[in-house]
Nucleic acid binder design. Structure first.
Length: 465
RNA sequence: GGCGAUAUAGCCAAGUGGUAAGGCAUGGGCCUGCAAAGCCCUGAUCCCCGGUUCGAAUCCGGGUGUCGCCUCCA
């Protein structure tokens, strides 16, 4: 397995801390609002990583956190007059439900920041004792000048003058790069007692603590892979790395992976730009699996420009897989075709080269169709194809549906009955060689977005679009 | 201003030195009562300029465009 490491800025061979195991920590969402397509893409990127490592026989421990205490959450609580718990549990559940719809399973461990307050207090206390953290009027800060390796992850070179213009500066900070570990709270805000002052944790501290708590290995590195969106590289991941390094002497992660953004009309989707496409709205229009396949279909590091047109093109590609699944319907899977499996895993082992993998799938489908055209009754062959498709269900999380149901998404029972009635009439017309009437009935259905296909097994139909 | 990414056919998109994967669309064909589906055939010299090399989309230098990070952000 080769992955692109953001710190080394190149593809490197994945050599886990412990042979055969992979400990992965992904930065999850701050739960104060609905998830958008960007969250989905990030989750999908590392869901793919998880699946591929498993297919390569790694024992994977996959952790994804929820940030459930934060300034934005507090604002929203006050706005909506809800408790912290009420607000965050709602959005956590919604996030998980939506991810399930996209075929993303829960992480092995899903820690919440508020469940690790003790650890964060202790962590900060150690940094204070080491004189790496210091106190100001509004909180405890991390002294970045105490970490010689600071900025070695992101390779940023920050200039004070420009930063000043954009950040509300705490003048008590020793260095402008220093960041808050703990924020002293106002009277009406959620807060936690601490020896160094009542308050709440800063954003970066939770990941360091939760990694230490749930995943930590002994030795030079605590975990194998730390992952998240490209926007987290700096300052979030840089700061996490610095905290852990200074506190424990260990590096936080051996490898760092970052996914590219989802853009709309070429611009990054973000809360501040107000151009977010929320997952709940997308899932109202598009099937979860189709959305999954679309968002997964280009390389995770590249930016992904969302467009409905491209989504529909992508769906056509998935349609082909399901049409093949129709052709081997009801056949039990036999052994997987090694000629298919091998190049698939090779492609995905190369930093998750999904484009190449999809090309291999297309080729497998094309060859299968070609063979089935010539040998429509070869059940032995069909069993192999069935096995290939079943394997893809695990590997990519696609093709899980009943193939007939897939093509009838969004059609209710009453409509189905009507469609089947018209198909029956048409079959009768055809039997009487009344082709004008048969074509007219087909035209009626076409207008309703129903495509007919006459096959040796009778007339089948699909909902188009 | 600092750091970084990216620029491949009408569109999406692989490809880090040897004469450009795949998908969609287009046009033609087989099949079909006609279709649909499936299958076959059909298209680019890789943003521009210069350099290295026997040979570059791929390496180096210089431009130009687009996007991102440096502020909460997947």
């Amino acid at each position: 397995m080769v992955i692109y490491d953001s710190q080394q800025r190149k593809k490197v061979t994945f050599e886990p801390i412990k042979m055969g195991e992979a400990k992965i920590y992904v930065c999850g969402p701050t739960v104060y609002d609905d998830a958008h397509l960007g969250h989905a893409r990030s989750a999908l990127s590392f869901d793919l990583l998880r699946r591929v490592l498993k297919a390569l026989d790694f024992t994977v421990t996959f952790v994804k956190n929820f940030t459930d205490i934060d300034d934005k959450i507090i604002n929203k609580m006050q706005q909506e007059k809800k408790s912290l718990e009420e607000l965050t549990s709602f959005y956590i559940q919604r996030y998980k439900d939506e991810m399930h719809t996209l075929g993303i399973e829960d992480a092995d461990i899903e820690p919440k920041a508020t469940q690790s307050i003790d650890e964060m207090r202790n962590f900060i206390q150690v940094l204070l004792e080491k004189n790496i953290a210091y106190k100001t009027d509004d909180g405890i800060y991390f002294d970045t000048t105490k970490d010689p390796a600071y900025l070695s992850l992101s390779h940023m070179q920050i200039q004070k003058d420009l930063t000043q213009a954009r950040v509300q500066e705490n003048l008590q900070k020793r260095d402008f790069k220093d960041f808050a570990l703990w924020k002293f709270s106002k009277a009406d805000e959620p807060s936690y007692d601490a020896a160094f002052g009542v308050g709440r944790p800063g954003w970066h501290i939770e990941c360091s603590c939760m990694i230490e708590k749930h995943l930590k290995s002994e030795g030079a590195f605590q975990i194998d892979i730390h992952a998240g969106g490209a926007d987290l590289l700096f300052p979030h991941h840089e700061n996490e790395a610095a905290q852990t390094r200074c506190k424990s002497g260990q590096e936080l992660a051996k490898y760092w992976m970052h996914n590219g953004f989802v853009t709309i009309n070429g611009e990054k989707m973000s809360k501040s730009l107000g151009n977010s496409f929320f997952l709940k709205d997308a899932l109202f229009v598009y099937d979860g699996e189709i959305l999954r396949f679309y968002l997964l279909s280009s390389h995770y590091r590249a930016n992904f420009n969302f467009s409905e047109e491209d989504l529909l093109v992508s769906k056509k590609r998935l349609d082909k897989l399901y049409r093949l699944k129709k052709r081997v319907y009801g056949i039990a899977p036999s052994l997987l075709d090694d000629q298919f499996k091998k190049p698939m895993l090779e492609a995905l082992s190369d930093d998750l080269n999904i484009s190449k993998a999809l090309a291999h799938i297309d080729e497998m489908i094309m060859r299968a169709n070609e063979f089935l055209d010539a040998h429509p009754k070869d059940t032995e062959f069909k069993s192999i194809i069935r096995a290939n498709l079943a394997w893809l269900e695990q590997l990519l999380g696609i093709g899980l549906k009943d193939p007939f149901a897939y093509f009838q998404l969004g059609v209710d029972t009453a409509q189905k009955n009507e469609i089947e009635k018209l198909i029956k009439e048409r079959s009768e017309a055809k039997a009487q060689k009344d082709f004008a009437r048969a074509d007219s009935l087909r035209e009626t259905l076409t207008c309703k977005g129903i495509l007919l296909m006459d096959t040796p097994q009778g007339t089948q139909w699909e909902k188009s679009e």
